[in-house]
Nucleic acid binder design. Structure first.
Length: 548
DNA sequence: GAGTTTGAAACT
DNA sequence: CAGTTTCAAACTC
């Protein structure tokens, strides 16, 4: 029989425990772990109704900017009933809340289980704000997910979609799980409480203030690291992005204010983060979402180190914020081209435990107008393509009729080539749509591909053009006619294919150009930063302990 | 993906 | 409470 099973069996023989998640040393009123915080980063990320919950209850959040063990969760990760409501607690055969007055704030508990960095790559599909993120998935094998080894259990949530074996942290094993909770609490009443005692943080944090966030908070128990220097994620303090404190009993600690090693680690993270962001943005725009989700694995890290020159100074971004930003769908969605590349304000978002600002290397290259123009260009291009390809098709038909089919292939290629000369690159200042528009477009009654129609529908929605007729592209009833005709068309798939090929080819070319521009800028930036690093190191050696 | 290292949790 | 073992995440190859 397993040892853990023995434990549980023994426990089961005990009388029903009084489960009291609040029954810590300070007594039952310690739901408030910390003084009320007027506005925490987490709060700012909550839906409005939850933010008001924060305020109306006047309770300091016990969920702070900390790793997975802070019991954040999503709607996809069910919270254990006893954590959710006294009612369910009372229904438990084993565990009961000691006092009805200790009603837990249900909404407060229904927050996202914050992923450990390792889990983040799986979360790129997560959407911003109210859209649930994928929860951390544990890989427990021997603990049955009923011990604190298990991240899910420690977070107070059921396993959901985890890779664990013999999992008992689920509804089906509620009794066993409740017992385990009781045993765990008996051993350590604070077992399910946050490990990090947080301090009030400023609601608005500028880049200059980010480094301060890293030192806010203290590990309640402290770490006991021996070999990691507290600069790896083995260290709970480091993972929580806080400095080691007097609570820690670590050896050879390098996670303290003013530590050169620590600064280097963060500088490296800064560098990698910015480069990865830029690369992701470019790639996601060029090849679509399939290439997103690029969490830095060690191998990738090596590649990026080579690429980056390994050090970038200028802005300190705490790792939690970095990872959180990686999740940001805007940075990886191809539809977010304008938002992620163009607007500086759009790039400043509350993320993770703090705010950080990412400025794309293309920020000065691409303007909003460029993106609008690109969209217009693609629409116009589709029209041109529809026209020329229809002509091509007619020619093919004719030549087939005259037995000269083979000659038409070359002709088709030439036509295609001609099409490609029609437009200019989008990045040459503002794309001259007029030129493309000047092409005699008498093909408005020709059917368009569904993709093209979708593009034009977007235009009509005013998504890009506001009034619908900006930039010289008139959106009129003609499009409606086209849509109608298209739906009634007899399926000119070859025309569609050629249209799409043309458009996608052009789009690819444009994106390649952008990537090139970004790379150039990044290279320039890196070389500048290298110089800066040298200067900063010199000043650091002279006693300047400033952060990047 | 397998193997190793690490440190928290669990146990004695 | 200190020492040891177990465990799963972090990390390396």
């Amino acid at each position: 029989m397993e040892k853990s099973e023995t434990t549980l069996d023994l426990a089961s023989r005990k009388s029903a425990r009084q489960l009291d998640f609040t029954a810590v040393r300070g007594g039952p009123t310690l739901l408030k772990l910390s003084p009320p915080m007027p506005h925490s980063p987490l709060q700012s990320r909550l839906p409005v109704e939850l933010q008001s919950d924060f305020q109306s209850r006047g309770q300091g959040p016990w969920l702070h900017s900390q790793p997975w063990w802070l019991q954040q969760r999503t709607s996809q990760s069910p919270v254990m009933p006893h954590l959710l409501s006294p009612r369910s607690q009372l229904s438990s055969p084993v565990l009961r809340l000691p006092h009805p007055a200790q009603k837990l704030p249900v909404k407060m508990l229904q927050v996202v289980k914050q992923e450990s960095p390792r889990s983040l790559p799986q979360n790129n599909a997560g959407l911003k704000d109210n859209t649930p993120k994928k929860q951390k998935q544990c890989n427990c094998k021997n603990s049955r997910c009923l011990k604190l080894y298990c991240e899910c259990f420690a977070s107070g949530i059921y396993c959901d979609g985890c890779n664990c074996l013999n999992c008992h942290n689920n509804v089906d094993n509620e009794a066993a799980r409740q017992e385990a909770v009781g045993i765990t609490l008996e051993r350590n009443p604070n077992a399910f409480r946050p490990k990090i005692a947080s301090s009030p943080q400023k609601p608005q944090v500028s880049m200059e203030e980010v480094s301060e966030i890293q030192v806010i908070g203290k590990h309640n128990k402290g770490c006991h690291c021996k070999k990691s220097g507290c600069l790896k994620k083995y260290c709970e303090c480091f993972q929580a992005n806080i400095l080691c404190s007097e609570n820690c009993k670590c050896m050879d600690c390098k996670n303290f204010e003013g530590s050169d090693e620590r600064r280097e680690v963060f500088q490296e993270e800064c560098s990698l983060f910015h480069i990865r962001q830029a690369t992701n943005a470019a790639i996601s725009g060029a090849v679509g979402p399939s290439s997103t989700g690029t969490h830095i694995t060690p191998k990738k890290r090596k590649i990026q180190e080579i690429f980056s020159g390994k050090s970038v100074i200028g802005q300190t971004v705490n790792t939690a914020a970095q990872y959180q930003q990686e999740l940001d769908p805007l940075a990886s969605s191809p539809l977010s081209l304008s938002a992620s590349f163009v607007s500086d304000t759009a790039n400043t978002r509350i993320s993770g435990s703090s705010r950080s600002t990412y400025r794309s290397v293309l920020a000065d290259v691409l303007q909003t107008q460029n993106v609008k123009n690109l969209c217009s260009l693609l629409v116009v291009l589709s029209r041109v393509a529809a026209k020329t390809n229809a002509e091509m098709r007619e020619k093919v038909v004719r030549k087939i009729e005259t037995g000269k089919y083979e000659a038409s292939i070359a002709s088709s290629a030439q036509l295609l080539q001609d099409n490609r000369e029609v437009v200019k690159p989008v990045c040459q200042d503002h794309v001259i749509i007029e030129e493309a528009d000047a092409v005699d477009i008498d093909n408005r009654n020709r059917p368009l591909s569904p993709e093209t129609l979708a593009l034009m529908c977007d235009e009509q929605d005013g998504m890009f053009f506001g009034n619908g007729s900006a930039n010289g592209v008139a959106i009129d009833n003609t499009n409606q006619n086209m849509i109608q005709k298209s739906s009634n068309s007899d399926g000119c798939t070859d025309v569609y294919e050629e249209q799409e090929r043309l458009i996608l080819t052009k789009f690819r070319d444009i994106l390649c150009g952008l990537i090139t521009l970004g790379s150039i800028k990044e290279t320039m930036y890196s070389s500048l930063v290298k110089k800066d690093v040298g200067i900063k190191k010199e000043s650091a050696d002279n006693g300047d302990r400033g952060h990047c």
